[in-house]
Design a protein around this nucleic acid. Sequence first.
DNA 1: TTAAACTTTCAAAAAAAATTGAAAATATTT
DNA 2: AAATATTTTCAATTTTTTTTGAAAGTTTAA
Lengths: 166, 166
Amino acid sequence: MKLNEAKEKFIQTWGSLASSWGINRTMAMVHALLLVSETPLSTDEIMETLLISRGNANMNIRELMGWGIVRKELKMGERKEFFVADKDIWNVFKQIVKERRKRELEPVIASIEELKKVDNGNGEAGEFLALMDSLLHVTTKASVLLDLAVKSDENWLMSKLLKLIK
Amino acid sequence: MKLNEAKEKFIQTWGSLASSWGINRTMAMVHALLLVSETPLSTDEIMETLLISRGNANMNIRELMGWGIVRKELKMGERKEFFVADKDIWNVFKQIVKERRKRELEPVIASIEELKKVDNGNGEAGEFLALMDSLLHVTTKASVLLDLAVKSDENWLMSKLLKLIK
DNA sequence: TTAAACTTTCAAAAAAAATTGAAAATATTT
DNA sequence: AAATATTTTCAATTTTTTTTGAAAGTTTAA
């Protein structure tokens, strides 16, 4: 397999993984393209390579910057903006986990806390409350665990976790 | 807040969480409905409560059974099928993790392994190979970690993890 | 074996999400 | 300050996903 072919396949793989996790397919493809690119790319280069429109390219680049995994790079003598992906995959992983925890997990935890205030005068909400409690247990534990992953160094964390398995 | 109102809100919350994780909104709502229901529900009851068609209800119930988090329950003297959700949330969590790891993480790991076979005669694929290696590191470690979560008991795991934090 | 009760399938329709492309806005150079 | 280059926005369009509902299939009971 030639390098360019492998890069293309990687872009496809990354794109389809993302879409099954509720992330825009094109955004993941732009990310993959920047990951495999040895040099910073301009919006035009991204448009050409992925055959997407300017609007689409712009939107997704912006979103990737919002996730903190792509940054702008300016070239001297060039008016265009160029983009680079953070190549430290552990860092990318942490960044995504951090964002999704904030955007999705935390609101759900807050919402379940809210639902625990349900009227239970006659005890009819007992089962419901028990369900909310167990949901809260699992979600807050997941949240704590993700926090641990995000805050710690990869090697330290992994050596500790591997010890748990034995 | 009245119990029924709280149940409705929970169904909405669960539905929107799911859709941001690439899971069909209606499927999550059916799941939530079964979670908060004190008794097994028939397809008709699910249709009526969520205002969805028979085909949709059937499809999503079937899918939930495929995920192993909802099961059929037969009532004596009744010809209809009734459905119940597993109320053990830790179990539900493990089941979902197990399935998604199998369905999505493993194929990606296999695909990256494949891409490592790229032609590197003249050394031009060096950066690409380094990227694949680091991806493989993170994904296989995530996979191992999820395996640990799935195979171990909730309390044991959590007490160990909490120790790591200190 | 027939009929009624119930479940499944799937083509068509509807809804939701993503994409386009051109106009507007912004930034840079002359 | 005008011209040019570049980026951003967003209404309209396209694509993808979800949902419907009626027909076909299956199971149970009489």
